[in-house]
Design a protein around this nucleic acid. Structure first.
Lengths: 131, 131
DNA sequence: TCTTCATATGAGCAGAGCTTCATATGTTGC
DNA sequence: GCAACATATGAAGCTCTGCTCATATGAAGA
C-alpha cells in the first residue's frame, strides 16, 4: 500500500533510468493502485479454467441452475456452488431463486465483452476429441 | 485430461440434471480443454497487478528498457525481468537487443485489445493520491 | 413434522505463482 | 584483460487460491 507508485525524475539517488522523460510520462499515465487491482481482479476471474467454463456455460445457456451448470461443465456441484458464490460477490452473475432452485445468469456486460473478445481469438473447437 | 467433458442426456445413473436438452447444447458448445486453458492463460497474464503495470507501461511508452519499466512501475528490476521473461515466452512482448540494453515492446494485438477494453472500463484515474 | 432434495458453507489440503536474494551472462570502456 | 554495468536466471519462501469432504440451510412433498 505504501509502495512508491511514482518516481521523481530529478532525484539523484533514485532508480536507474535511461529515458527519464518517458519514465515520468508513463508513470504519470499509469492508473492508480486501486484501478490496477480492480482490473487485475476482473481478469483474474476469467483466468481459471473451471470458472471460465462456468461463465461460458452461462454465456451459452442463459439462465441455468447449479446442477445443470455442473453437468455441462463436468464439475462437482460443490465446486460450481463455490464458483458461483465468488462470481456473485463480484457481480458477474445474478441469481433468481425459485423454490429450492437457484437460477444463475451473467450480469456484467463488461465481463461478457471481454469473454466474447477472448473467445473469438481461440480456435473455437467445440471439443478436441477425434471420434 | 481424461475428465468427462460432456454428459449423456439419456444415461440413468448420470449426473443430476433439470434441463438435459440445454445441458447437452451447452456442453456441446463448450470449447475443448485446450482452448479453455489457452484462454484462461491469456486472462491469467493480465490478472496480476505487477504484470498489468508492466504491460500498461509498454502500452503507453512503446519500446522501453528494463530499468525504465521498473522505474515507471515502481518494481525491482529483477521482478520486471522475470515478468518480461514470462511475457516473452507467451509472445506478448518482443525484445530488441542493442548492446547490453534490452528494449521491450508489446507484440500481441489480442492482448492489446483485451487491455484496451479493460482499461476503458475502470475509472481511469492516473493516480489515486490527493495532495 | 419428517424425509428428501437443491444449494450453500466451512475447514483443510495441495498446488501454483510472485517476490526477493544471490549469482551468472554478456557488453562497454579503459 | 579487467572493472562497471544491464539484464537474465535459479532457488527459496511465502501467500493465495481452488478443490474436495463434510455439514448446514431451506424448501417441497408425504
Amino acid at each position: 500500500m505504501s509502495r512508491a507508485s511514482y518516481v521523481a525524475a530529478d532525484e539523484s539517488c533514485a532508480v536507474r533510468m535511461v529515458d527519464p522523460d518517458r519514465v515520468v510520462t508513463v508513470a504519470g499515465a499509469m492508473p492508480g493502485t486501486e484501478s490496477i487491482e480492480e482490473l487485475a481482479g476482473v481478469f483474474g476471474l476469467l483466468s481459471d479454467p473451471g470458472r471460465l467454463r462456468v461463465i461460458i456455460a452461462l454465456l451459452e445457456g442463459g439462465e441455468m441452475c447449479v446442477c445443470d451448470i455442473a453437468a455441462a461443465c463436468g464439475h462437482s456441484e460443490s465446486a460450481v456452488s463455490h464458483t458461483l458464490r465468488l462470481l456473485r460477490a463480484h457481480h458477474v452473475v445474478r441469481v433468481r431463486r425459485s423454490g429450492r432452485m437457484a437460477y444463475h445468469r451473467l450480469d456484467d456486460s463488461h465481463v461478457r465483452m471481454l469473454l466474447d473478445l477472448g473467445l473469438s481469438h481461440v480456435s473455437h473447437t467445440p471439443d478436441t476429441e477425434a471420434p
